[in-house]
Design a binder for these strands. Structure first.
Lengths: 137, 137
DNA sequence: CTCTAAGTGTTATATTATTACATATGTAAT
DNA sequence: ATTACATATGTAATAATATAACACTTAGAG
């Protein structure tokens, strides 16, 4: 169908499936599970787990989303360019997840990685916390 | 049966299932998957996944083993008392996993956690690396 | 001995993720 | 435009990982 709209030279533009999965994660802001994403996007035409996993894989590779390993969930990347490095806090009580934006923390990690002569290609840091509202109650 | 051997007051002694799972992980030294453990211990009398998962859960709680989230595997704890805090390197090429024993690194993490006013209850750090032998070849 | 917490054994099922294969699409080079 | 190639798609089947539910047993404290 008339594919003459402005797609210019950007081979980086996302496909339809990648787009709708990214949009959902963007709008949610929370970590979502693959099968929840599938259910949510049935009406958009997603029918099988594979369609979701393929989109997720691609988005992870592009650095647009992250996988939080310990809860098998995916979340939009809030940093402009964290590449494949991730750092999260996860509330042990309510499960709330936040990406750590703190540049100082990330720099510190980078430093201590160097100090310890680890040749790191990337890292995934999961800090379990008691979040503010859970601490109060 | 005669349970008159010296179990003294230590209610901390492991049960049979916990024991054989721990022994397997101890002897292996590598990360093992739950269903691999199940297969390996069929001859010892383990018949169902649940028996394995229950033993693993308990051993994790006791701090005797760790779960490496990103590969759904379990590994013996090499540190005397890392509680539930874990730090691993994972080779991106061969998959080899090593627990980071480096006290300096762990101290540094603790420090920067304090510096950043994160109230951490525990953490799981996964550093992806290119291990020595993979770097050479 | 009795109570209780923890562990066991088993079946069934839920959740998470991949394999395989045929088809379609986008991009670049001819 | 035609070919070639990498990437993406759609679909069905299945693999891999983990938990629920239930009846029963064991170990240790009082």
């Amino acid at each position: 169908m008339s594919s003459t709209h402005t797609h210019s030279k950007k081979s980086r533009s996302l496909t339809k499936n990648q787009r709708i999965v990214l949009d959902l994660l963007q709008n949610s802001g929370e970590p979502l599970k693959a099968y929840f994403i599938l259910d949510s996007l049935k009406k958009e035409g997603l029918n099988s787990p594979l369609q979701v996993y393929r989109a997720l894989d691609k988005l992870v590779k592009l650095g647009k989303i992250h996988k939080i390993e310990s809860i098998n969930s995916f979340i939009i990347c809030n940093n402009s360019n964290c590449a494949s490095n991730t750092a999260f806090t996860i509330c042990e009580r309510c499960g709330k997840v936040k990406e750590i934006k703190n540049k100082h923390l990330k720099d510190s990690v980078s430093d201590l990685v160097k100090d310890n002569q680890l040749e790191i290609t990337r890292y995934n840091l999961e800090f379990y916390v008691l979040c503010k509202s859970c601490k109060i109650n």
